[in-house]
């Protein structure tokens, strides 16, 4: 649990970060809350000769709500997310999800950007951002670009982000209707055995549109278009829920670990999604 030696940088602006990333290439990593990277460094599973701490960069902070457009800076902590009244009103699913991430001490440090950028299949924010159809703003030496959260994840710890790019913020439209973030975990601080993010918009007593994403049931977050399609036009009756679960099960690909075998995970994924849809529909 003793990391190898590294050089520590604490630039004041994003340009400084990009310059350091260009200078050191693969040997540099940015540090947000550190709850993924620092343990990996201590285990010597991540070797980071140049560590760039982002905490002094004002441009990465803050939550803005402009009409129905919500922007969350990369360095916003889970704690800030939970305690931002405007955000809790505009996108309550974020608060519900963030409260299920780790424990208060971790949430004081853990950031939205770190959670999204790292590509850890266990993280909750990636699936949530897919559910909300968030756009991820990246900045690199060639300027900024935007990539949809639904296109960002390639494999475990592999994302569309280039090594010399950093995640600046995420932007999404305030969701309408009912929501639920349902997560089963073994204990506080654990990653999900299965988690589901659900948003349902209701018009004339029926599902107008839905969005469903699953967490830690594949090597990437799983946005299930098929599951959402099953709900469209329905009143979320039992048969529809079953069809949605069946569609979702076609999209996930869990692996066995200490949380349990594949059959268990698939079963729980179905239960968790059913509960999430039911709660979201009740709230819609």
């Amino acid at each position: 649990m003793i990391p190898a030696a590294f050089d520590y940088y604490r630039p004041k602006d994003v340009e400084g970060v990009i310059a350091l990333l260009q200078e050191h290439g693969d040997d540099a990593r940015v540090l947000a809350g550190g709850h993924s990277l620092i343990p990996m460094m201590k285990l010597r599973m991540a070797e980071v000769p140049h560590l760039i701490d982002l905490q002094d960069i004002a441009a990465l902070k803050g939550i803005t709500i402009d009409q129905d457009t919500i922007t969350i800076g990369a360095m916003v902590s889970q704690h800030e997310l939970i305690n931002h009244d405007g955000l809790s009103a505009a996108a309550p699913i974020l608060r519900e999800a963030a409260l299920q991430i780790a424990d208060p001490q971790v949430r004081y440090m853990g950031t939205v950007g770190g959670n999204i950028a790292n590509g850890d299949p266990g993280n909750d924010m990636p699936g949530l951002m897919q559910c909300l159809d968030a756009q991820i703003n990246l900045l690199g030496p060639d300027g900024s670009r935007t990539v949809a959260a639904r296109d960002y994840y390639e494999a475990a710890y592999m994302t569309d982000r280039e090594d010399d790019e950093i995640l600046i913020s995420v932007v999404f439209t305030a969701p309408v209707g009912g929501f639920a973030y349902e997560k089963q975990k073994r204990k506080i601080g654990d990653y999900a055995t299965a988690a589901a993010a659900v948003q349902i918009a209701k018009v004339d007593g029926k599902v107008a549109s839905a969005s469903i994403a699953m967490t830690n049931l594949s090597d990437v977050p799983v946005w299930s278009q098929g599951a959402a399609d099953e709900l469209a036009g329905s009143v979320c009756e039992t048969a529809t829920l079953k069809a949605a679960v069946a569609a979702m099960l076609g999209d996930i690909d869990p692996t066995e670990d200490n949380r349990g075998p594949v059959a268990f995970k698939r079963h729980v994924a179905g239960i968790i999604l059913t509960r999430a849809i039911t709660r979201a529909w009740d709230r819609a």
Binding site: R186, T193, R259, G260, A263, F264, H267
Partner: peptide, 16 residues
């Protein structure tokens, strides 16, 4: 008796 083993017990008993 962690979650999956309890689930397995229920499963073996035909409760799912």
């Amino acid at each position: 008796h962690d979650h999956w083993r309890i689930w397995q017990t229920a499963n073996d008993l035909g409760l799912h």
